[in-house]
Each structure stands twice: as C-alpha cells, then as structure tokens.
Deep mutational scan, measured.
Amino acid sequence: MDPFVVLVLCLSCLLLLSIWRQSSGRGKLPPGPTPLPVIGNILQIDIKDVSKSLTNLSKIYGPVFTLYFGLERMVVLHGYEVVKEALIDLGEEFSGRGHFPLAERANRGFGIVFSNGKRWKEIRRFSLMTLRNFGMGKRSIEDRVQEEARCLVEELRKTKASPCDPTFILGCAPCNVICSIIFQKRFDYKDQQFLNLMEKLNENIRIVSTPWIQICNNFPTIIDYFPGTHNKLLKNLAFMESDILEKVKEHQESMDINNPRDFIDCFLIKMEKEKQNQQSEFTIENLVITAADLLGAGTETTSTTLRYALLLLLKHPEVTAKVQEEIERVIGRNRSPCMQDRGHMPYTDAVVHEVQRYIDLIPTSLPHAVTCDVKFRNYLIPKGTTILTSLTSVLHDNKEFPNPEMFDPRHFLDEGGNFKKSNYFMPFSAGKRICVGEGLARMELFLFLTFILQNFNLKSLIDPKDLDTTPVVNGFASVPPFYQLCFIPV
C-alpha cells in the first residue's frame, strides 16, 4: 500500500478516535471549553503556568470542569470545598494515580508514587510505618536530621561569610537525610558517588519541569519514536535504579534480621516474612523503585522550600529577627534545636507554614484518578478519569488567608500570638494520596531553619526591599529566582 495512503488512514483513525473520546459521556461530565481534535484544549493552557490557566477557566466554568490534554480527559478541581469533598470525603474513590506514560515506562507500575490498587496500598502502608518507626538502627529519624543539620551548619561556616548561592548546600542536606534513612549512610558533600546522585536528581527535576515532558505524557507515541530530553530522564532513572540495586545486594549479604539498620533492611525482612506468599507485593523490584521514589520526592521539594525560605527571610528581616528572638528565648545557644521545641515556638512554626503556603511549591499536585465511576456534584466521572487538583486555589484562598499574595506569618497566628491551624494548609496535597514523607519534610524544615538561624545572621547583597521573591514557574514547580547571601556567624 502507498505510504501516503497509510499515513492518511492513520491520521484519520487518530482523528476519529479523538472525536469519539471527547464526545463520549460529555453530557455527564462537568462543563469545559470545547476541545480541538487530537490536541484537545492545549492551546487554551499556558504550559509554563498551568495553575494560572486553571484559575482563569474556573471563573468561566465553575469549581469543577473538564479539560482535554491531547486525548487525555481530565476533570479539574478548583477551590477548597471541591478539593476537600473529593480528596477527603470521597478519598477512596479519588485515590488513584493519574496516567503518566513516562513514569509507567520507567517504574513499570512498581513503587509508591505511580503505583495503584493493592500494590500501592500495601507499599504505602509499609513505608509510612517504617518512616514513623523511630527505632531503626537504634537511631531515631530526628537524630538523623539533627546530625545532618549540624553538618549543614559546618558547611555554611566554610563560606566564611562571603557571598554564596545556597542551592547546592541546601540540596545536599535533605538528600543526605533520605540516604541515611534508606542506606544507613550519609555522605560527605564532596563524595563523588553522592555528587553523581545529586546531579541525576537535579537533572531529572529540570527535565520533568519542561513543556516537552508534558507533551510526551499527552502524546506517548513520542516516547519511542522521537529524540528528546525524555530519553535522558529514562537513562538517569535507570542509572539510579541500578545503583540502588547494588546497595540492596550489599544489604542482603550483611543484614541482621533482628537489628534492621535502615529502610532497605526493613523491606528485606518483610520480604523474608512473605516469601511463601506468591501474591506478595514485597519484591526486589518494588524495593528498588520505592527507594528511588523516596529519593526523588524527598530531596528537591525540601531543598527548594529551604532555598525559598531563606530568600523570604532576607526580604523580611523583621520576621527573621522575631524567629531568632524566639530561638534565643526557648533554645538558647548551648544546645541543639529539637522537635519538642516546636510546641513552644508558635512564631517560628507560623513562619515555616507561611513559607510553604506562600511559595505554593507544587501548584497542581500530582494528578489523581478516580478508581470507579463516581457521581460528584451531579456529574458522572468515569472510572480512570484523571483528576487535576489546584492546590493554589486552596493555599491562596483570600477568605482563609487575607492578602494571600503577601508573605505574612500572621496567617497562622491567632490574636494572642498562638499558632493557628488551618484546614486550607495543603502543600502536601490531601486525602489518601497525601505525601508519604510529610512528617519528615516538616521535621527537616523546622530543624534546618532553626539550626541555621541559631548559628548565623543572614545578610543580603542588596537592599532587602529590592529582592525579587516572585516565583519562577516552570510548569511543574514554583522555584525561587537566583540569589546570593552571606551567612554571618553569630
């Protein structure tokens, strides 16, 4: 058959498939802009700032609406009420993970971030239990974070109060905490193996944040037939998995079943207990991918939040002064901060919360999916439909947070200066898919920041009023603009 005829037939089939998918069930789905064949609503979305586009569309179609990214149908949730109703009140029905062709290629359905069903539930339950087990290797997770915080302070001392970009050092600290939990080992910041790991993690975040990856996920045929950065992403992930597998083999040879040292040991012990169960989800494949998931999810998000926190503290020296006064009063100079201190430091706690609220790190979270046909607000959402959640619409709700575009710790303080919780605080998402490392991340943010401010004054290279804190939105995360500062020993 003539190649031209084959091409026309293929394009015609794709067009018909697109029209059929977009028209099927439209009477039951939430409203939304009319999609174009094949490309859907992509032309109506700013790929570099999806969150802003969703906010604009919500003003037209309401808090629940339908979009098509290519052939992929998505239902968008915008605003606290619908997000709570879906992710919390109907948590089980909305607990699936959205379709990610690239991740599915890399992870093969294993791990904790992109798995679904029984596998996801069992691996998540085990990971939560293990991360909360403060007795691994007779050292609590808090001990590990405190140790890394001391190392971080010593690295900052080496800058000798000269101007520096904190990106690298602030990236090393949370990565080392995860390494300590998974591998029972922290690395020197100049260790070549550690630097290679950091390089792969950072490069992957840069790649994932590009519009090209959005295109690959919406048109998965590209993955096999086109060159691009997605190939580098898959190569980096394969490198990390190979490295983790080597460490798993080392653990198998040296493990003491009665004295687990780290996450890998705990997983291997669980595998041993379930070795007679042919349906067990505790396999080497799941261990390797879960460890890679924890490394990827637990490094860049925390380091970016820390980097943004220091920029905001530079911009608002009056806030920094209040935090340091609270540190001096509650902790002093002669001991290290600990998590028990947080309950006695409402202002510092409010500042950490406000940093996370203000920066809105992951504006749309990772997409969910419905696990069955769901009736939601008089609409029928078919099983498997991807759910896109606007966390921006919750964290920047102007009824809950007056002047949401302003950095103001009073958003989390009552009139008496006591810490005030808010149900709208969802930087880790909400419901059954809430970030498994939430507790660890909150511990790291509090301890790293208090250790830094206990030991250093922060000095800006320019007038604080002239510092730009506008986030650089890159399609996946909101990151701070480049800046330098000086760490002046107190």
Rank of each mutant, 00 (worst) to 15 (best):
M1T: 00
D2E: 14
P3Q: 08
V6H: 05
L7M: 13
L9W: 15
L9Q: 00
L11E: 00
S12Q: 06
S12F: 14
S12C: 14
C13I: 15
L15N: 03
L16S: 09
W20Q: 07
W20S: 08
S23Y: 12
G25F: 08
G25V: 15
R26Q: 12
L29D: 07
L29Y: 12
P30Y: 02
P33Q: 00
P33H: 01
P35H: 06
P35I: 05
P37A: 04
N41M: 00
L43F: 13
I45E: 03
I45A: 04
I45N: 04
D46E: 08
I47V: 13
I47R: 14
I47Y: 09
K48R: 14
D49R: 11
K52M: 08
T55V: 11
N56E: 14
L57T: 05
L57V: 07
S58M: 05
S58Q: 07
Y61A: 01
Y61F: 07
P63I: 00
V64Q: 02
V64G: 01
T66V: 07
L67P: 02
Y68K: 12
Y68W: 14
Y68L: 05
Y68T: 12
F69C: 09
F69V: 13
E72R: 14
E72W: 06
V76Q: 00
L77V: 07
H78E: 03
V82M: 07
E85W: 05
A86S: 07
A86K: 00
A86P: 02
A86N: 02
I88C: 14
I88H: 09
E92W: 09
E92H: 07
G96S: 08
R97P: 03
G98D: 03
H99D: 07
R105C: 05
R105M: 07
R105S: 06
A106F: 15
F110G: 11
F110I: 06
V113D: 03
F114C: 07
F114M: 13
K118R: 12
K118E: 14
R119H: 08
W120R: 03
K121D: 14
E122R: 14
E122M: 10
I123K: 01
R125L: 09
S127A: 15
T130V: 13
L131A: 04
R132T: 14
N133F: 06
N133I: 06
M136Y: 07
G137C: 12
K138S: 13
R139L: 14
S140T: 13
R144L: 14
R150Q: 14
C151Y: 13
C151V: 09
L152M: 12
L152H: 00
E154P: 02
E154D: 12
E155T: 09
L156P: 00
R157Q: 10
K158Y: 09
K158H: 13
K160Q: 14
P163H: 07
C164M: 14
C164N: 08
D165W: 01
T167E: 11
T167R: 12
T167D: 04
P174Q: 07
C175G: 10
C175S: 08
N176W: 00
I181Q: 05
I182L: 12
I182Q: 01
F183C: 08
Q184A: 14
Q184L: 08
K185G: 11
K185A: 11
R186G: 03
F187I: 04
D188G: 10
Y189L: 07
K190C: 09
Q192A: 14
L195M: 04
K200F: 03
N202W: 11
E203W: 06
I205P: 06
I205S: 15
R206P: 04
V208Q: 15
T210Y: 09
P211Y: 09
W212I: 06
I215S: 04
C216N: 04
C216E: 00
F219Y: 14
F219T: 05
F219R: 04
I222M: 08
Y225V: 12
P227Y: 08
G228E: 04
G228S: 04
G228M: 05
N231A: 11
K232T: 13
K232H: 10
K235G: 11
K235A: 13
A238G: 09
E241R: 14
E241F: 06
S242N: 12
D243R: 14
D243S: 15
I244L: 12
L245P: 01
K247P: 02
K249H: 10
H251C: 02
H251P: 00
E253V: 11
E253D: 15
M255T: 05
N258W: 07
P260W: 02
R261I: 05
D262V: 00
D262A: 02
I264V: 15
D265A: 03
C266I: 10
F267M: 05
K270S: 07
M271L: 08
M271S: 09
E272F: 10
K273V: 09
N277G: 10
Q279P: 13
E281C: 11
E281Y: 13
F282P: 01
F282Y: 11
E285K: 08
N286K: 00
N286I: 02
L287D: 00
L287I: 06
L287P: 00
V288R: 05
V288H: 03
I289A: 11
I289C: 14
A291G: 08
L294R: 01
L295W: 04
L295E: 01
G296K: 14
A297D: 04
A297Q: 14
G298H: 03
G298P: 00
T299E: 03
E300R: 14
E300G: 12
T301W: 07
T302R: 00
T305K: 02
L306A: 04
L306V: 08
Y308D: 00
A309N: 01
A309K: 00
L310S: 02
L310M: 11
P317I: 05
P317Q: 10
T320S: 10
Q324C: 11
E325A: 14
E326L: 02
E328L: 13
V330T: 10
I331W: 05
G332C: 01
R333L: 10
Q340C: 05
D341Y: 06
D341L: 05
R342T: 10
H344W: 11
Y347E: 01
V351L: 09
V351E: 00
V351M: 12
H353K: 03
E354K: 01
R357C: 00
R357Q: 01
L361W: 01
L361T: 06
L361K: 03
P363S: 03
P363C: 02
T364P: 01
S365T: 05
L366Y: 10
L366N: 02
A369P: 01
C372M: 13
D373M: 04
R377G: 08
Y379G: 01
Y379S: 03
T385R: 00
L388P: 00
L391N: 00
L391S: 01
S393D: 03
V394F: 02
V394H: 02
L395Q: 03
L395R: 02
D397F: 02
D397T: 02
N398F: 12
N398D: 14
K399M: 12
E400K: 05
P402S: 13
P404L: 02
E405A: 09
M406Q: 14
M406P: 01
M406C: 13
F407Y: 05
D408G: 01
R410P: 03
H411L: 02
H411E: 01
D414H: 07
D414L: 05
E415V: 08
E415Y: 06
E415C: 09
G416K: 13
G417I: 06
G417E: 08
N418S: 09
N418E: 12
F419A: 04
K420A: 08
K421T: 13
F425N: 05
F425A: 05
F425S: 06
M426I: 15
P427D: 02
F428Q: 02
F428A: 00
S429Q: 02
A430F: 06
A430S: 10
G431M: 02
K432M: 15
I434S: 13
I434G: 06
C435G: 01
L440Q: 00
A441M: 04
A441N: 03
R442A: 15
R442T: 12
E444N: 07
F446G: 03
F448G: 03
T450P: 02
I452T: 08
I452Q: 04
K459E: 15
L461F: 12
P464A: 10
P464T: 09
P464H: 09
G475Q: 09
F476V: 15
A477C: 11
S478E: 07
V479R: 14
P481A: 08
